[in-house]
Amino acid sequence: MSLEKQVKFFKWISILEGISFLLLLFIAMPLKYIFEMPEMVKQVGMAHGILFIAYIIGALLLIKPMKWSLSQMAIIFGCSVLPFGPFYVEKKYL
């Protein structure tokens, strides 16, 4: 796979991971704890977990081709656990 295609694929993973995290935090969790509807957390949580793993693997695969420094890598991995973090990575580093 070419670097251009890898980056494009990682951009999509980054955006989808960010959206799934926001859905989990701001829709599924309130539904579970305020309205006692835990079903959404199971579904969105599973999707978010898969996308999170894909994000980490995608970032690991791009370290060498993108020539990211240690500090850039720390920011990219740190953003994976912050709301809106993956969107920042997508705009700043890709």
Rank of each mutant, 00 (worst) to 15 (best):
E4P: 00
V81K: 01
E36S: 11
F9M: 13
K64E: 13
F10T: 12
F77R: 05
V41N: 06
K8F: 15
M66Q: 15
M40L: 15
F52C: 06
C79A: 15
L25M: 12
F10E: 14
S20R: 02
M40G: 02
A28G: 04
L16V: 01
L23E: 06
I56H: 06
F87T: 06
L61C: 12
K8R: 13
K91Q: 11
E4K: 14
I15C: 04
S69C: 10
I56P: 06
K91Y: 11
I19E: 03
M73H: 00
M46Y: 10
P86V: 07
L60K: 08
M73F: 00
S2M: 09
V89T: 12
M40W: 10
L24P: 05
A47I: 15
I19N: 02
M29E: 06
F21S: 08
A47R: 03
L16H: 00
F26E: 07
Q6W: 04
S69D: 09
W12K: 14
L31M: 14
A59F: 06
L60G: 13
I13H: 05
K32M: 02
S71W: 13
Y33F: 14
K11S: 13
W12T: 14
P38W: 02
S80M: 08
K11C: 10
S14N: 09
I27E: 00
M46G: 02
I53A: 15
V89P: 02
L61R: 11
M40F: 14
Q72A: 10
I34W: 11
A74H: 04
Q6Y: 04
L22Q: 03
M37R: 09
Q43I: 15
H48L: 05
E4R: 13
K5W: 08
M1S: 14
I75N: 08
V89E: 01
V44Y: 08
L22S: 07
L94I: 09
G49W: 09
I13K: 05
G49V: 05
S14Q: 08
G45D: 08
P65C: 09
Q43A: 12
S2D: 15
G78R: 08
E36M: 05
K8N: 13
I34T: 10
L31I: 04
E90V: 03
Q43N: 12
I56M: 13
I75P: 01
L24W: 01
K92T: 13
M46E: 01
V44P: 00
M40K: 04
A54C: 14
E36N: 15
K5F: 05
G58I: 02
F87L: 10
E36R: 05
K42Y: 12
A54N: 07
V7A: 11
I27R: 00
G49H: 11
A74Q: 08
P30D: 03
I63R: 15
A59V: 05
E39L: 14
S80A: 15
Q6P: 00
